[in-house]
């Protein structure tokens, strides 16, 4: 049912969706939330001139709102400026370790000095959840 040890050794490049969805740094929190809903994702890369300068997750939004920011505030006020990333050749286990060390749920994946995708805890949870749902629906 849960991620087996063998799979944790697999390179992360095998599990990521290649492509990063990003939003301009001057957009509002409200618009970022709308876009996350529209695309069915829980994080966005924050862009300046099409380069990634920050990272915005659902957790950052909740924290920002809880701290009293307006939904019309700009996302650069709440985004994480320290980009947490790993190389595409590292194993899932190694990526999870980096994520745990930085206490984040998403990690940017780099290949040849370029960001190529995002890996999130949801990717693993989804796999388990879908298997569970398949079992529920089998009768």
């Amino acid at each position: 049912m849960f991620l087996d040890i063998e799979k944790a050794k697999y390179p992360i490049k095998q599990f990521i969706t290649r492509g990063i969805i990003g939003i301009d740094k001057n957009e509002t929190i409200k618009n970022a939330c709308k876009k996350m809903t529209e695309f069915g994702i829980s994080s966005l890369a924050v862009l300046e001139n099409e380069n990634i300068i920050g990272f915005l997750s659902k957790k950052d939004v909740i924290k920002g709102i809880a701290e009293g920011l307006s939904v019309n505030a700009k996302i650069n006020k709440i985004m994480s400026k320290n980009l947490v990333f790993c190389e595409s050749s590292v194993s899932i286990g190694e990526a999870l370790e980096i994520m745990a060390n930085f206490q984040v749920r998403h990690i940017l994946v780099k290949e040849k000095e370029e960001f190529i995708g995002i890996f999130s805890l949801k990717d693993i949870i989804d796999l388990q959840k879908f298997s569970l749902e398949t079992q529920i629906s089998s009768d």
Partner: peptide, 13 residues
């Protein structure tokens, strides 16, 4: 060999 990887959500649907 290189492919564009970053997609801006501001594109019109």
């Amino acid at each position: 060999r290189k492919k564009e990887r970053i997609y801006n959500v501001n594109s019109e649907k």
